[in-house]
Amino acid sequence: MRITYQYRLRLTQKQIDIFEHWLELCRRQYNYRLAERFNWWEQNRCDVNRCSIVCCSIAPLKDQPNRWSQQKDLANTKAIFPEYEELVSHTLQDVIARVNKTLTRWLKGDCNGKKSGRPRFKAKGRYRSLTFPDPIRPERIQGNFIKLPKIGLVKMIFHRPIPDGFKIKNAIVTRKTDGWYISLSLEDSTVPLLTPDVTPTHDNTVGIDMGLKSFLVTSDNQEVQIPQYYRKAEEKLKQLQRQLSRKKKGSKRRQKAIKRVAKLHLKVSNQRKDFHYKTALWLTSKYKFIAHEQLNILGLAKTRLAKSILDAGWGNFLNILNLKAANAGGAGLPQNPYKSSIECSDCGVEVPKTLSQRWHNCSCGASYCRDHNAARNIKHRAVGHPVLKCS
């Protein structure tokens, strides 16, 4: 089992300066290695795929740079630029691993075949994290301090202890708008992954319907109001962005204004994440299986409702919900939402309605809120309709 704990750091000014310098060195190395890959691609691609029998003047292809050749070349980098000797070797190697990962996702895609966009060079301040891939021994944590290589003891707010039996596999130091954080990746191979020991039934399963009027409605007709954190912060954000637009580029006042805008965005993000975790905990504490809609959020985000949909954060919530349900020994059950609002959850007959019609009335006598009816249909698709299944 693998989990991640994040702690806030309390750094001295000297430690902040060291971390800032290391981030800048990593940023330069990232851009250089990425440019090296792009240059090889531009210099060696050619539309001519055949050579003349008489003569051939095509130059031989250069060796394609890869992760291992670039890591081997780090010795030359340290010889030319001695300041790279200050960095931890594995931290520098992780920079090249990131370049390799982002290029692979662009050219080949991830494990699901989904491709990312063309990698971009990191502007100043855009490289924000340092990875220490080596396992950290337990004796390196001394009270509220953790000992990191080449920097020594670093103070952190140790708000929760590390569980017994878990080992620290790596640490990532991240710079955020409101300070510095360290994420510890913990692993215990003796803890098995929980698998559901029962099958979904009508008693241990709940269906949820995501919406914008309410964040979600369960099949038991319980409603969670949508908080709309971004909508509530829009007026304040508008004022801060207006102040930012008036500042001279490159000035210290502009940097302070940028930081104020970033802090407000971070606050909205933290509020939304806290709401998602609390809602997921509430659902997983009451039900073992949670059936939810399999939404095309990227497609929905291109409609007129894009701002409200992204403010609700459906995608992040469903990821958190599935993870928490699995950790609790249950599972999230994604279902096709097609006609879930039109079909009657009692008899299965389709009752056409427009988006403005918020109430479901069927000839069989069923009368439900539109979202409640959809949540019941989502549950029935996960475990089977109790009436139609018998007939």
Rank of each mutant, 00 (worst) to 15 (best):
W40P: 07
R175K: 15
Q71Y: 06
L388T: 03
N112W: 03
T177M: 07
R128M: 05
Y277K: 11
F19A: 03
G330H: 09
T4K: 05
S367H: 11
P133F: 03
Y368M: 07
H21Q: 05
L388P: 02
C369L: 09
D73C: 11
G330P: 09
K249E: 00
H159D: 07
L148K: 07
R126S: 10
K353W: 05
I96E: 10
E20H: 01
V261N: 06
A328Y: 05
S285H: 13
S345Y: 10
P82T: 12
Y287V: 06
I146F: 03
P138W: 01
D94Y: 13
L9M: 10
E24S: 02
F19S: 04
D63Q: 14
K278R: 11
R27Y: 00
S116Y: 02
H159T: 09
I172D: 07
L25A: 08
Q335Y: 10
E20A: 05
N144E: 14
L240Q: 07
Q29A: 10
T174K: 13
Q241P: 01
W282K: 14
Y127P: 09
R50D: 04
F121V: 01
P119R: 09
K213F: 04
I80H: 15
A325T: 01
W359N: 13
V261A: 06
N361Q: 14
I16L: 05
W314E: 06
I151W: 06
P133Q: 11
D220T: 15
L298I: 10
G365F: 04
W282H: 11
R137P: 00
R8M: 02
Y338K: 15
E235W: 00
Q239F: 00
L184H: 10
I208S: 10
L11P: 08
A280F: 05
G207H: 15
Y32Q: 04
Q357F: 05
P163G: 10
E24P: 00
Y368K: 04
V349S: 14
H385P: 08
G125H: 04
K232L: 02
I172V: 15
W40F: 04
R254E: 01
I258E: 11
D346G: 13
Q228L: 13
A280H: 06
K263F: 00
N66I: 10
R175A: 11
